[in-house]
């Protein structure tokens, strides 16, 4: 990319999605997670390990914070004076929020993480040099760094176990950053099939691994642009808009029907994942 091109097309190079002149069309992948339905079973995290070739690092490395779970279940305890078994807490499945104005993208020195046209925050392993700047700038702390060469030296996939690796996903080597991709390998396969048939991807045609494995159906995933998709309907019903940092919700005095929110919305990273507040008193 030449300097001329960079200066002439700055708006295109750093294009903020979505903006009025260039809305998402025909795809914007988004998610909605119902925390009331989440039972914290970790099936989503396990499915993610299986789908995305994540190394199981073991107890020691977990203690050092070198765990590689792209999808993690966070626990929030209620500070109400009660002790452990009775103390209420809630689960929060946390993964890359695929921000529209992602803080990680602006700081990458080599452009290894950037925005795709269907609204994903891409991470290109072969371009990554491992500066870890993106992880430092991520408000959700959902980026994971390969401190070890897991495929070979650390032996996380001993002989024959390597046959269970997903061939559609790169097995990352030492020194690159990685994160949730919204199962981009499935999205691309569905998009390419749809493209060949001259249509867009239909609702329900593509699922992420976490969504597929969720026993309570807490996770819904789909095309936010498609008015028929469940995600679109949920976002609409909860009055959550992608491009607003403070949602103009039609809230009633003394209680509300609306449960939808996005995490750290005020930071204006415009995440693509909407959470639905818990209604039950305690998760368990």
């Amino acid at each position: 990319m030449s300097v001329t091109n960079l200066l002439d097309n700055w708006a295109a190079v750093r294009h903020f999605h979505p903006i009025d002149d260039k809305p998402h069309d025909p795809y914007k992948w988004a998610m909605a997670i119902d925390l009331d339905a989440c039972i914290g079973c970790n099936a989503c995290a396990v499915a993610c390990y299986a789908e995305n070739n994540l190394p199981v690092v073991g107890r020691e490395k977990f203690k050092h914070g070198q765990v590689m779970h792209w999808m993690r279940i966070e626990r929030y305890w209620e500070e109400d004076g009660r002790d452990f078994p009775d103390q209420g807490f809630q689960f929060l499945p946390m993964m890359c929020q695929q921000c529209e104005a992602a803080p990680c993208e602006t700081v990458c020195p080599v452009g290894a993480t950037n925005h795709t046209q269907d609204g994903l925050n891409s991470q290109i392993y072969n371009r990554c040099i491992g500066s870890r700047y993106c992880s430092a700038n991520c408000p959700f702390k959902v980026r994971y760094f390969n401190w070890y060469d897991y495929p070979t030296t650390e032996n996380v996939w001993p002989a024959e176990m390597n046959y269970q690796l997903n061939p559609d996903v790169t097995v990352r080597g030492k020194g690159v950053m990685e994160k949730c991709t919204f199962c981009v390998q499935r999205l691309r396969a569905a998009e390419v099939t749809a493209k060949g048939e001259g249509r867009i991807v239909r609702e329900g045609e593509v699922q992420t691994a976490c969504q597929q494995s969720c026993p309570t159906g807490a996770i819904s995933f789909g095309n936010l642009v498609d008015p028929e998709s469940r995600v679109h309907k949920q976002w609409q019903a909860q009055q959550v808009d992608l491009d607003k940092d403070a949602q103009e919700k039609n809230q009633k005095e003394g209680g509300t029907d609306l449960r939808g929110y996005r995490i750290l919305e005020e930071l204006r990273s415009y995440p693509s994942v909407m959470y639905l507040e818990r209604v039950r008193e305690s998760a368990v």
Partner: peptide, 14 residues
Amino acid sequence: TPLGKQAYWYTFQK
């Protein structure tokens, strides 16, 4: 290559 309402043969964006 059709540039129809739904089928974009080139990119994932129109």
